[in-house]
Simulated assay, not measured.
Amino acid sequence: MTIMQCVHRDYTITADVVEHPGIPTPWAGGCVITTPDGQTTKRIPLPVNYAFMAELEAAQHASIAHGKWLVDQFLDEGKTLFKAA
């Protein structure tokens, strides 16, 4: 499997898709975001209604798009990427 990633506004977004064999939509989308200073988030799953997909490539693209949206929310709206300890 190839790793899909991109850089958006100096943040590296990596698709982190998990396979659940045996179900019609086995690909669970999610992403990991690395900040410009090197901090990395834990895996951030897609929202439940959109998490599972039938095709790996679709799950990867959706995961990257979700990561871009999260970075935009963080930079433009002040939302957090990291959970408080």
Rank of each mutant, 00 (worst) to 15 (best):
M1R: 09
T2A: 15
I3K: 14
M4T: 11
Q5P: 01
C6H: 08
C6I: 10
C6P: 00
H8D: 10
H8R: 08
R9Q: 14
R9M: 10
D10P: 05
D10W: 02
Y11S: 09
T12K: 15
A15W: 02
A15R: 07
D16H: 11
V17R: 03
V18R: 11
V18S: 08
H20Q: 09
P21T: 03
P21W: 02
I23H: 00
P24N: 09
P24D: 15
T25R: 13
T25Y: 11
P26Y: 01
W27I: 03
A28E: 08
G29C: 04
G29L: 07
G30Y: 03
C31T: 00
I33G: 11
T34I: 07
T35G: 01
T35W: 09
P36G: 07
D37E: 14
G38M: 04
G38W: 03
Q39D: 12
Q39H: 11
T40S: 15
T40F: 05
T40E: 15
T40I: 13
T40A: 14
T40L: 09
T41F: 14
K42G: 14
K42E: 15
R43L: 09
I44L: 14
P45H: 12
P45F: 11
P45D: 06
L46R: 01
P47W: 01
V48C: 03
N49K: 03
Y50C: 04
Y50G: 01
Y50E: 09
F52D: 06
M53S: 12
A54W: 01
A54Y: 00
L56M: 09
L56H: 11
E57N: 13
E57W: 00
E57I: 02
E57H: 10
A58D: 15
A59I: 00
Q60V: 01
H61Q: 14
H61C: 09
A62T: 04
A62N: 10
A62S: 12
A62Y: 01
S63L: 07
I64S: 12
A65S: 11
A65C: 06
A65F: 07
G67D: 05
W69N: 10
L70H: 04
D72I: 05
D72V: 05
Q73V: 01
F74Q: 13
F74G: 06
L75W: 05
L75R: 09
D76K: 14
E77R: 14
G78E: 07
G78N: 12
T80D: 13
T80H: 07
T80M: 09
L81N: 09
F82P: 03
K83I: 10
A84T: 05
A84Y: 06
A85D: 08
A85M: 04
A85Q: 07
